[in-house]
Design a protein around this nucleic acid. Sequence first.
RNA 1: GCGCCCGUAGCUCAACUGGACAGAGCGUUGGCCUCCGGAGCCAAAGGUUGUGGGUUCGACCCCCGCCGGGCGCACCA
Length: 572
Amino acid sequence: MDTFQSLLAKKLSDALARAGLPDAGELTQATDPRFGDYQTNAALVLGKQRGENPRALAKKIVPHLDVDDVSEPPAVAGAGFINFKLRPAAIEKQALDVLRNGRLGVPETESPQRIVIDFGSPNVAKPMHVGHIRSTVLGDALARVAVFLGHEVIRDNHIGDWGTQFGMVIWGWKNLLDRKALQRDPLAEIVRIYKQTNEGASRDPEVREAGRQELVKLQAGDKENTDIWNECVAFSMQDFERVYKLLDVHYDLQCGESFYHDWLPGVVDRLLKAGVAEISEGAVVVFFRDDPELTDKPLIIRKRDGGFNYATTDLATIDYRVNDLKADAIWYVVGAPQTLHFKQIFAVTRREGYSTDLRHIVFGSVLGEDRKLMKTRSGENVPLRELLEEACRRARKIIDEKNPDLGEEEKNDIAEKIGIGAVKYADLSQYRTTDYIFSWDKMLLLHGNTAPYLQNAYVRIRSIFRKAGELDGFKLSSLPSFKLSELAERNLAKRLCQFAEIVPQVLTGFRPNILANYLFELANSFHAFYESCPVLKSDEPARSSRLALSDLTARVLQRGLDLLGIKVPERM
RNA sequence: GCGCCCGUAGCUCAACUGGACAGAGCGUUGGCCUCCGGAGCCAAAGGUUGUGGGUUCGACCCCCGCCGGGCGCACCA
């Protein structure tokens, strides 16, 4: 089905053709309600192209616009904008179409792709910390939106399970391990031995060398070291899984760096043979002499000592994703510090002739209240699991105050939905590339642009329907058409119709925050409607129409929040 | 030194990638509960978009120069 936007855009194209003008400009939601509901700058763009007066062009276009069924007569305004104001009858009809449409009117993409999304990527032998939250939450949301729009998505957790740190971990395991501590809290013990070994290595060259030897043995396939490595990976994965369960994040694939280990020599050989890479100062290096930005930034793919680094691994990973997984696109949801790295990697693959659509989706950092990278008091990274559990605890405390009569089990369930939702929403509602300051108080606020505010709007609607069921056994299947007599009703209905216009935009520019902002405005519109239009106490046909409007709001809220990976409670 | 990102109300952030008088929330001030959940609604005050130029019908957005902050630049991932 068409949205208002796509419908008006088509009608605009037709009108331009009839007026003997080329297609130009765009048709968008109005920037301000006083201009109407939709607007086009076609006349302005054409005016510039042809050196003609924009207002005169607009006046020439308007008579050719056949929009009588949806819009009041279009008006020329300002420098040459053409404004459209929707007719109430058109809103009623469109809202009904959306209500009956299983996808809430959201169109499927016309060019479905197979997309590998690389996000999360924690390191083994370290707990996940706040630094991982944006990648994980953002990547998951983008995956959900892409799936909903009809793409085939492979969520891949590129776990850091093969770094040089393993030499240290294995040496520590053999020399410092406390078995009892390992049983109590495996990951904490692994972190302890790693840190202690690291400190030892920085003082004592012999320890460092011993660690290096353990790494060499591991990479050569030594049985004992491989077993230790496997155990460390398994313990880490347990920690990750707990976090993923809390976050409701799931992967289709968890191919860590170790997965690509055997292919690295082949990658280097191939690039050497193809003349893409060359030997320089004993290392194998790719130079980008024709690229002014990278000309003085060579990429090492084999170190002087013969070892490979993560650039090599990333190249092998692209091979796998393109050749075996048949990816049309690969999205890397990875922090901004790696911008240069990905530019280099992408440049290499272009030189090799890959046509895959590679995107580095950067994001800003999570800062503490002091505007520095968020750390604990002692300067450590904040473990993600503890942060999430704290969010749930704080949510639980609020529920105890607001709604003490709920059962224990339900309270915990709600607390999890609110606490986790608040953390995710604080992240996703922000523009992707800006750093943001993590604040418990602001995040769990019950009003303002927060997850609890949106969840509350949903809960109020559910409450209406519980009551409706008690009163007269109301059933949604018997819905009549919309009758939107009040301004607040029409505003809400228009907003609901816009969901279909907003969702596809999330992927152009990878901006879940526009969906978050839309949902916030939707909740605003609903609350305004709720205040001024009684639902259950009104007479027919308004009553049924308002119930339908409420139902549709609940469904859009639920679906929209689901696309952000946020759950809604029935009560809170 | 070179490159990338950032600077918007007291605070935290938007602004649909060049559109109309730069919008929200928090906080502040003032209203609204005989009414479906007040975890709500309505309203007011608050701005030279870091700064100086430029491009054009039109600039928070693009270009150039400053100021201030963050990050990255050959063998860590």
